[in-house]
Design a protein around this nucleic acid. Structure first.
Length: 802
RNA sequence: GCGGUUGUGGCGGAAUUGGCAUACGCGCUAGACUAAGGAUCUAGUGUCCAUUAGCGACUUGCGGGUUCGAGUCCCGCCAACCGCACCA
């Protein structure tokens, strides 16, 4: 027996798989299909991180198992390669981002190959490839044509020193990450995608999908549907519309609050007595993010608008109008009615500024805090609503508002439209031109796609924060596709999210140049059977891609309403100090070193054994060694395989039980317990001293998805024909998963006092008899009156005796 | 703050979903083999008490409750982690 030389073995099998295109998915419609997907990575300069292989190995296990179960499996890989870090790296090192991307991809690919994933490399996609982003642009154009893409003024983070727009991530404590300058908000006209038009469907269609619950609830909460009403107040003689979820409390509205950005403020400039103060506050609010502005714990700030008043439409009372940063222009109507008696934020605000608080729902003590309970309260001080429950009052007031023509029922969503413009180079060009003559934005003809990203000398943004493309006059100046006159190209690019919103469709038919994928390929492969990814993508990528897919469904491009049938999520791998791995903490583990020293199979196994797949787990070098030891013991076991066939009597139950356990655990993300079960079986093999050929073969097949190289090698050494990865998944016999005689726990008065061995199908009488025949246990109940016996077959017998 | 989640030995974690808490692995202790062991094998290993011995007591973040029986269900606390819309 040779020693276990992981390097030679792994290289050997990886080459064989490559040469044979062993994991290529045919469009073979005679077999049932299985589409397993993991989120394609952003190929960063740091290379693969030990966190990446965790989900990849998990879905690789599922894919390898499915192939053995007779499925035609699509398990693809690609690159989500546009984005900010590449561009910043390119600027800093004066290398073209395309070159940076190519290098990073080559590195990632080599690393992935060394881990032995069964990806179908013939279907690799790359979002920065013009043949790919041609279709990203095509989808955008369809959205534009359907009115789902529109331009709007939006605030962006602006570093006045670097003269560049910043991503939220590049803003640390309100300052620029690179130079530390205080970040300002600038308004800029941006392309937006109307995801809000799909808000209700994005909630409704979750039903029937096999997504883990926390993903569903997180998406539902993010979309944030709330039912309420819009009501017109009269402010400074004109209608000022507000949204409220508590129209029942209208009688308690003692003042109004507007967002500092509300356009009425400018309209009222001449009436407002303290306009300068208002403008100052607006500037102050603009320096903060929405996140900071809405933070509950912070001290409330605000300014009263002097010189203008509002009228409460139900009481006719004149009330003051304030501005405050906690009211956002992006939610509702940008103005609220404040009911300090029954809203926590309003209560704090009113208390701080000495505004009146009126109780309109009885049941709490509004001198101490706002009473917000909607179940138990009764309406008071509310005219015709008095005596009603909150629920009844909501209906009654909305009917009243509708009748008077000053309000209506309204459903609002927290979800906001998607800011789709970036003033950056390394992204898909937006295929639109602006034509003065035609008076607006015009779509490029579809035949002219892709609109290729022009070569630039430098991808640094322009002096006013415009896209680097804005400096390319030759490229910008073009002709209008409608009138043929002069027109200018859009210089903003798309965000990285664009390419990742439909990549799973491209895998179905990656080389098609007449459609994003053929109808046949999509009909066969849709939907994705299992998509695993990080929880951090739940409310952005996962939601964005569902939105795009629904749009494509509406225009008849894709065959299903939803892209993903099943969604699961993995936990993060932390550094050995329990902290998130990061260069600055110095706790990053490089997978190459693990593969080199211990082997890919060891690393794959350790990443699956490290803990609950869905939870974060800290890396441990000792744990890696433990897995390596297990593989060494398996390697040695090859010497103890007999010529006998079938399962031996001594191991029969364990074999069936382990097949059952491992088969189930691979389906339910319990990879750690599947491996534990195989370790336990291996311990039994060791204790038995020898195993039959069939026991060995079954064991190798079960382990193959986790450790594909060593098992394939051992299969060959055992002289078995064919490749291991082409074998059939083993079956088990349920009846043979339990011993004939089993041990059950005996409790007396609820305390565990011992065990008795009984037949597996024994009834309560027999179980009790067994307890009686055990002298020690019997002594505890002898002479006592048995009041109650609880017998759970196969588990426990509990005897209550006095 | 809002939303999502987690809390079990020295460590990673397991527990058929209300039924023998601590499977499996790591670490540790002792022994074997050895020139050597940071290799391998064997045995032991929750805490406390007792030790000629156990039918002993306690234990799943903290405090209550339901139940024959609670890590699991209910109520109230505490702590930690993830996301928050231009990172991917």
């Amino acid at each position: 027996m040779n020693r276990y030389d992981h390097k030679a073995i792994e290289k050997k099998w990886q080459n064989i798989w490559d040469e044979q295109h062993a994991f290529h998915a045919d469009d073979d419609t005679s077999k049932p299909k299985y589409y397993a997907l993991i989120e394609f990575p952003y190929p960063s300069g740091q290379g693969l991180h030990v966190g990446h292989p965790r989900p990849y190995t998990a879905m690789d296990i599922v894919s390898r198992k499915r192939r053995m179960q007779g499925y035609n499996v699509l398990f693809p890989m690609g690159w989500d390669a546009f984005g900010l870090p590449t561009e910043n790296y390119a600027i800093k090192n004066k290398i073209h981002p395309k070159t940076v991307t190519e290098n990073n991809i080559a590195h990632f690919k080599e690393q992935m190959k060394s881990i032995g994933f069964s990806f179908d490399w013939d279907r690799e996609v790359n979002t920065t490839d013009p043949n790919y982003y041609k279709w990203t642009q095509w989808i955008f154009l369809q959205m534009f044509k359907k009115g789902l893409a529109y331009k709007q003024e939006m605030a962006i983070n602006w570093c006045p020193s670097c003269k560049v727009g910043l991503a939220n991530e590049e803003v640390v404590d309100g300052c620029c990450e690179r130079c530390g300058t205080q970040v300002e908000h600038r308004r800029k006209s941006q392309w937006m995608l109307r995801i809000t038009a799909y808000a209700q469907r994005l909630i409704d269609d979750l039903e029937g999908l096999d997504f883990i619950e926390r993903v569903k609830t997180q998406q539902i909460n993010w979309i944030g549907r709330s039912e309420g009403a819009e009501v017109d107040f009269i402010a400074n003689g004109q209608k000022l519309r507000i949204f409220t979820t508590r129209p029942d409390t209208l009688f308690g509205a003692t003042y109004m609050v507007m967002s500092p950005e509300h356009p009425y403020i400018d309209d009222w400039k001449d009436q407002i007595e303290n306009f300068d103060e208002i403008m100052e506050y607006r500037k102050f609010a603009a320096s903060k993010s929405d996140f900071d502005r809405t933070e509950m714990a912070k001290e409330k700030t605000g300014v009263e608008i002097k010189g203008v008043k509002a009228i409460n439409p139900v009481t006719g009372t004149e009330i003051p109008i304030w501005i405050s940063d906690y009211v956002l222009m992006t939610y509702g109507t940008g103005a609220i009615m404040a009911v300090p008696g029954h809203d926590t934020r309003d209560w704090e605000f009113a208390t701080k500024f000495g505004l009146p608080i009126i109780e309109v729902v009885a049941g709490g003590d509004i001198t101490k805090e706002a009473f917000t309970d909607i179940q138990t309260g009764t309406m008071i001080n509310s005219g015709f609503l008095d005596g009603m429950s909150v629920e009844e009052a909501k209906k009654a007031i909305i009917d009243w508002l509708v009748e008077k023509g000053i309000g209506e029922r309204k459903v609002n969503f927290k979800l906001r439209d998607w800011v789709f413009s970036r003033q950056r180079y390394w992204g898909e060009p937006i295929p639109l031109v602006y034509c003065e003559h035609c008076g607006g934005w015009q779509a490029l003809p579809e035949e002219s796609l892709p609109l290729v990203l022009p070569e630039v000398e430098s991808c640094e943004p322009g002096p006013d924060g415009e896209s680097p493309l804005a400096a390319m006059e030759e490229w910008i100046n073009t002709t209008c596709p409608v009138c043929g006159g002069p027109a200018r190209r859009e210089t903003d690019t798309m965000p990285q999210w664009a390419g990742s919103s439909w990549y799973f469709l491209r895998y179905m038919d990656p080389h098609n140049d007449t459609a994003l994928a053929s109808k046949e390929a999509m009909a066969y492969w849709s939907p994705i059977d299992w998509y695993n990814g990080g929880m951090e993508h739940t409310t952005l990528h996962l939601l964005y891609s569902r939105f795009w897919h629904k749009f494509l469904y509406d225009i008849g491009v894709v065959p299903t309403k939803e892209p993903y049938q099943k969604r699961t999520s993995h936990g993060m791998i932390l550094g050995s100090d329990g902290q998130k791995m990061s260069k600055s903490r110095g706790n990053v583990v490089n997978p190459d070193e693990i593969v080199d020293e211990f082997g890919a199979d060891t690393m794959r196994m350790y990443e699956m054994f490290i803990g609950d797949f869905e939870k974060a787990a800290p890396w441990s070098e000792q744990g890696v060694k433990g897995c390596r030891r297990f593989l060494e013991r398996i390697w040695k076991m090859q010497e103890n395989v007999s010529e006998e066939t079938g399962y031996s009597k001594a191991l029969e139950v364990s074999m069936h039980r382990t097949i059952k356990k491992v088969s189930q655990d691979y389906e339910t993300l319990k990879f750690n317990t599947a491996i534990a079960a195989m370790m336990a079986l291996m311990n039994e093999f060791t204790a038995a001293g020898t195993v039959t050929k069939d026991e060995w073969k079954t064991f190798l097949i079960l382990l193959n998805p986790v450790a594909p190289h060593i098992t394939e090698e051992l299969w060959q050494i055992a002289g078995e024909p064919g490749f291991l990865f082409q074998q059939s998944w083993p079956e088990y016999d349920e009846a043979k998963t339990v011993e004939d005689r089993i041990s059950i726990a005996v409790q007396i008065m609820g305390k565990t006092r011992g065990n008795v061995e009984i037949a597996k199908e024994a009834d309560q009488e027999e179980a009790l008899a067994a307890v009686r025949s055990d002298a020690r246990l019997n002594a505890l109940i002898d002479g006592k009156n048995i009041i109650k016996v609880v017998y759970v077959p196969g588990r426990i017998i509990n005897i209550i005796a006095k």
